[in-house]
Each structure stands twice: as C-alpha cells, then as structure tokens.
Design a protein around this nucleic acid. Structure first.
Length: 304
DNA sequence: GAGCAAATAT
DNA sequence: GATATTTGCT
C-alpha cells in the first residue's frame, strides 16, 4: 500500500544510474588521438560520388558507409578534432549537406537495459497518467533522445505491460506458469528492467502520480550529481583513452556486460570504435561488417 | 501533441 | 529475423 509507494519513491533515486554509470549520448567514444594510435583509417577513400545522385531512399545508406575517422587528410599538421572527426565529409558532397548535419536522420537508437530502466523510472514517477512521450523525455533528460524515440518505445512498452497484465491475470486464474507464456522473443529489453508494481495494477493505485507532478531528473540529484554527464564523459573518456592499460588499477571496462549488447556494441578487441555526431555515440565497425548500419549506444555500462 | 497499427528501415 | 523508426490516421 502506502509503504510500497514511499519505498518505491525513495528507491527511485537510488536506482538511478549514478553519474559514474551514466553515459551521455553526446560523447565521443574514441579520441582522435586514439584513432591515430590505432591507425584507424578509411578502408575506402572513395568519396567521389558519381555525378548522378540517385534520388532514391538510398541516401541513408550513403551515410552509413561513412566509416569513422578521417582517412588521410592532406593536412597532417592539423589535428583532427572531435567535430570533424565525426564525418570527414565524404558524404557531404552527396545527399547529406554538411550544414544541416544535425537535421539529418539520427542513427538508430539502441535501448540498452540501462536506458530502458531510466525510461521505466521516468514513467513510474510520472505515473501512467502523465506518462506521455514528451514529459517522459523531459524527465529522462537524456541528451540526444527525441520525443519520437520515447513515443515509439512507450508504445511498445505499453503493449508489453498489457501482455504482462494479461498473463499475470491468467496465471492467477489457475493456469500456472502463465508468466512463462510471455514471449521471450518479444521483450528481452522490457524484461531486463523491473516493472513498477502499480503498472500492472492500475486499479490498485489509481492516483500514484499525486506526489510527483513533474521533477526534472537533474533536480532530483540533490547531491553533486548535477554534471553527471560531463563527469561520466570524463571518466569514460579516460577508460577509452587507456584502453588496455587501466591506470586506476581497478576499473572495469565500461562496455557491455551483457552478451545481447555485444552485437550492437563494439568488440573491445577492435581498435575501431565510433565517432560523435553532435549527439551521441555511434558504432560503425560492426556496421561495416554487416552492411553498414549506424547504431547509437547510450549506456555502455552494463550495470543493473 | 498523443496514441495506435502497420509499414519500413537497419 | 529482431528492433527501432516512420507513417498515416484518429
């Protein structure tokens, strides 16, 4: 009853990813220096596009082909910055203009368990009533996350909850092992994060949103957690920077601890990692292998 | 702008 | 093939 609420509420903050765990979307995972160190370069420097630009939807693919790193700039004296590091502009001549770089299609966002958890937390605190994409998005305050991302995810999440209710009801009815009925294939992600009790029992808690009208996440971090993003960024940067040589002596690699993420994340063994595109991290190395797809990773850390 | 279903893309 | 995104509609 009430205890659950207060409990849930107090636990919320605790369960929120700590600044150290948070991985901001707007961080480059690989520094230019690192790229150079690993001798990362463009497999095919073919940027010279045919004069005829096929007015088809292939434009996105052209982007995707853009591997990270600037190949071999005719200007060795110039240190590549994280900015131009994002795209050397090989596709700039084609469909994608360099100007509206941010208006371009955002790379596919990967809903990591951590990100989803944040999502669930936000929804939980808003209450189902107020849990609309826009507010959720604001609450999450994840850089780079769009309203549509949330809307889309919310849509699926609702379906998931619906199913959960269904099976839980059926299970209570008598058909045991109903929980097992939940499609394991459909909700890997959702299952990874605990669903607030009242989500499944709307009737039990008709007004769970009375105590939390709207609280921006940063505000919730009453501590010094304000600049979590920068903090995490710095830390993460260090990790990446020292790749194979932990200076701290006790840091674990911030990357996946879940096998399921591996395919979307990069493999540690590979030098190639990702570039930043004014918003978040992308992975292209696995992309090139499978046809070229851009993937966004938000919370590389696999902590639950 | 939100919600939903279906289509589409990766 | 699984997922995330986009689209069309209400």
């Amino acid at each position: 009853m009430r205890e659950e609420d207060s409990n849930w509420f107090s636990r919320w903050e605790e369960e929120l990813p700590s600044p150290e765990e948070l991985m901001p979307l707007s961080q480059t995972l690989i520094t230019p220096d690192l790229a150079i160190a690993f001798d990362i370069r463009n497999p095919h420097t073919t940027n010279t596009n045919p004069t005829t630009t096929p007015p088809q939807q292939q434009q996105q693919q052209q982007q995707n082909q853009t591997p990270i790193s600037n190949p071999s700039p005719p200007n060795p004296s110039q240190q590549p910055t994280s900015t131009d590091f994002a795209d050397s502009g090989e596709l700039g001549s084609g469909t994608a203009g360099e100007e509206p770089a941010r208006t371009l299609k955002r790379p596919r966002l990967v809903w990591t368990p951590q990100l989803h958890k944040r999502f669930v937390d936000a929804v939980a605190h808003l209450g189902i009533k107020n849990a609309v994409p826009k507010t959720i998005m604001q609450l999450m305050s994840v850089d780079g996350l769009t309203r549509e991302n949330v809307a889309s995810h919310l849509q699926k999440y609702r379906l998931y909850l619906k199913r959960m209710q269904g099976i839980s009801a059926a299970g209570a009815g008598g058909t045991a092992s109903a929980a097992a009925v939940a499609d394991p294939a459909t909700d890997h992600l959702f299952a990874s994060s605990p669903v607030p009790p009242h989500f499944l029992h709307p009737a039990a808690r008709p007004n769970s949103d009375h105590f939390l009208p709207f609280v921006p996440v940063p505000a919730l971090h009453h501590h010094h957690h304000q600049q979590q993003q920068q903090l995490a960024a710095a830390q993460f940067h260090r990790h990446v920077g020292h790749f194979g040589s932990p200076t701290n002596g006790h840091f674990e690699n911030p990357f996946m601890s879940r096998p399921s993420q591996q395919q979307q994340l990069h493999r540690m063994g590979g030098p190639v990692h990702n570039s930043v595109s004014g918003g978040y991290v992308e992975d292209m190395e696995s992309a090139n292998a499978s046809g070229g797809r851009k993937v966004l990773t938000l919370f590389p850390t696999g902590d639950d």
